[in-house]
Simulated scan of single mutants.
Amino acid sequence: MAEVGFPGQHTTTTTVTSSTAVQTNIRFDPSYIKTIPGILKIVQVSCSLLGFICIQFSNLNSASRGSFFSWISMIAFWFTGILLGFYLFHILEKFYKIPWLKIEFVFCALWTFFYLLVSILATTVHDNPHSAASFFGFVAMIAYAGDCYLKWVAVRAGGLAQGSRVVSKQTTSVESPPPREGY
């Protein structure tokens, strides 16, 4: 039986601290292109441009399928190229409060689907430029899918696009002494 005035107690305190370490100066850092996300961005930009060029060499480039492929590849080329520049010059780190990883995740997911769609449509046109464009479209689709997965993992972990966020968790627990037998 517990003594009067000494109720059984159990207290748990959890403290979570988070610190963000970023450098807000703009600087050129070519080491990004040696990372997996950097290599994926270079593949995405290259395949988007090459697919666009292939479609433009087709006699059927102004048909709906060719125009759709050109539209998708040019949006991908410019958006991903600008992001690559932002990463190389650490502009994303300067504006770290913008949810860059979520923006990239949504874009990569959409363009994975769009490249799947336009590449399948390009294969239905029976000429060599469309076949080459569909190859580059499928490669770009794989690169966007891989980048989408990396962004999804980073978003779930609470990471930043550039810089670092350190989250530490400390848990303390206080328990009451075991109850004593009555006299």
Rank of each mutant, 00 (worst) to 15 (best):
C54M: 13
P178W: 04
Y144S: 06
V167L: 04
F135N: 01
R27T: 15
T13K: 14
F135L: 13
F114W: 14
G163M: 02
T12N: 12
K169G: 12
S19M: 01
G182L: 07
K94V: 12
E104F: 00
H90Y: 09
W71N: 13
G8Y: 00
I103Q: 03
F105V: 00
I26G: 00
W78A: 14
S19W: 00
G38T: 07
S46T: 15
V155F: 07
W71T: 10
E181F: 13
E181Q: 11
L160D: 04
V167T: 14
R65K: 10
Y183F: 02
T171P: 04
R180P: 08
I72E: 02
S58G: 11
V174G: 12
I39F: 05
E93V: 02
E181L: 11
Q162K: 11
T14N: 14
W111I: 15
S58H: 01
E104Q: 04
I53R: 02
R156K: 15
M1D: 12
T112P: 01
I103M: 10
N59Q: 12
T172V: 11
A154M: 06
V139M: 12
N25V: 06
V22D: 10
A143F: 03
F86R: 05
N61D: 01
S168E: 12
R165A: 06
T124K: 02
M1Q: 13
A154Y: 01
I75M: 10
L110P: 00
S18Q: 10
Y183A: 09
F89V: 09
Y144W: 11
P30E: 02
W152G: 15
S131Y: 14
G159K: 07
P7Y: 13
C54V: 03
L88D: 01
D147M: 07
I98S: 08
G163S: 07
L49E: 05
F57T: 10
P178S: 10
T24F: 00
L117H: 12
I42W: 00
P129H: 05
T11H: 06
V4P: 03
W111Q: 05
T124Q: 15
H126E: 14
V153L: 11
G85E: 03
N59M: 06
F89H: 10
A143T: 05
Y87H: 12
G51F: 04
L40M: 04
S168H: 01
M74P: 02
L150S: 11
H10L: 14
A63Q: 10
P99D: 05
D29G: 09
T112H: 07
G81F: 06
T123A: 02
L83T: 08
I103E: 01
D127T: 11
F28Y: 15
K94Y: 01
A157M: 07
K41D: 15
I82Q: 07
V139E: 05
